[in-house]
Amino acid sequence: MRRAAANPAALTHAAAACLVAATLVANPISAPALASVDPAPLRVDCRGEAGRLLATVDLGPAVDAGLERKLGNGLASTVRLTVAALDPSGAGAGGVERDFDVRFDVWTETFTVTIREPGAAASSRTVSDWATVRRLLATPAPFDLGPLAALPERFTVEARLELDPVTGLQLGRTRERLAHPAGGRSLLGSLAAFLLRAPPPDAERYRSTLLTRSDFAGGAASRAR
């Protein structure tokens, strides 16, 4: 049987195969798929105001003792709360994102909560008890979900709560540590830092029942579970 002649394309294919093999070896550490967990029920109060939909979510079930323990451990933590209106199929873009930076000072034994939201000035409060912190997190100020006219006729409100999301700042800090592992600069560390991506979000989801847009046209309020 005549053997196929070697050619540059074959070599290129071989090199590509090596790369693919290497990538396959590296593949097990690729990003895990998002867990497709059904969202928990969400209680939300909505009202129309000046043609816009304002939603007040109740995240009481999410702000539990476990979260208290995590936020009270003395480390700076961030609770990212994202509220969005979705169509019945669950599709919908964006949402309003609000970060709660919580830091418990083990010396003064007080919580400092800083609330940050794009387009708004950050506000900071120092409180001495968890109950206040819990109230800030569980019943945050209403979220402006945008013009009512832009919403589908029937929609749900979804709240995503993520503890300590890997922010750009944290990612940059991790990259810096990779690139300078022992104070000096590392070429391989720099390469690894360059290739480091943000991990996929790991959020708890809560979703309301279906709401009807026309219910809020006249500034009416509605509560949904």
């Binding site: 290497a22 550490i29 895990p32 990779l178 690894a192 480091l196 943000a198 991990p199």
Partner: peptide, 24 residues
Amino acid sequence: ARDMDRARGELRRSILLVFAAMVS
């Protein structure tokens, strides 16, 4: 450590990609 724990999978992937790039 907490940040890196969150990014653990990505860290492993990037380190191995660097090595794969070196091999290539």
